[in-house]
Design a protein around this nucleic acid. Structure first.
Length: 186
DNA sequence: GACCCGGAAGAGGG
DNA sequence: GCCCTCTTCCGGGT
């Protein structure tokens, strides 16, 4: 039963560049944004520059992670439209899927205290603060549910990607791994 | 106890 | 109505 991940050793791993610009974040798609009323940021001018910041693509050490306090996370301004992705197939901008969300948050150094790459070349990452990542996902998804999103629910969503082939099991605590370039799955 | 795993059913959107 | 993507619940394993 525990042999599955051993087989992955021989899998051809995606190169770094395959993980890189997998999302076309909206920049000039303002007229194509879809949304709902509860989380409607789409009618605002989204041609601003808040999504054009350059994000360092670094793997963070545990020491660096420790330096960032909980307060730092809470002070990060949330803007739903910042998370939207351009769906080339549908030709419109939409909220991200869970694997897309994970990739985006991993690439954003502001959240490195909550989630970071362990080995970016292999798509391996670890969640340091499951509760906060789940809470952020709830906000990004803008989904109206009665229950609060917890890590168990959040991780079940990730495990759904094992079936689709987007993720590989690691059997390690809070640790997940992308298998393929995300844009090849979406 | 906390986490991992996956089945099953259902919700919500396209 | 169908399909996709989760969300929720749950039982079993580590």
């Amino acid at each position: 039963m525990m042999n599955e991940h051993h087989e992955e050793k021989n899998t051809i791993l995606p190169k770094l560049e395959e993980f890189s610009p997998v999302f076309e974040i909206y920049e000039d798609q303002s007229s194509q944004v879809t949304s709902n009323d509860e989380c409607d940021n789409s009618n605002e001018d989204i041609s601003d520059n808040d999504t054009k910041q350059s994000l360092p693509l670094l793997t963070h050490s545990n020491d660096e992670i420790q330096e960032q306090s909980d307060d730092d996370f809470n002070e990060i301004p949330f803007d739903a439209k910042e998370w939207f992705v351009h769906d080339a197939t549908a030709g419109r901008v939409r909220p991200p899927r869970q694997n897309e969300f994970l990739y985006k948050i991993l690439e954003d150094s502001r959240y490195s205290s909550s989630i970071s790459w362990l080995d970016r070349n292999e798509g391996l990452f670890k969640i340091h603060d499951p509760k906060r990542v789940a809470e952020l996902w709830t906000k990004v998804k803008c989904r109206q549910t009665s229950a609060t999103m917890d890590y168990d629910t959040f991780s079940r969503g990730i495990r759904y990607y094992y079936k689709t082939g987007a993720m590989i099991k690691t059997y390690k605590k809070y640790t997940f791994r992308f298998k393929k370039p995300i844009n090849s799955i979406v």
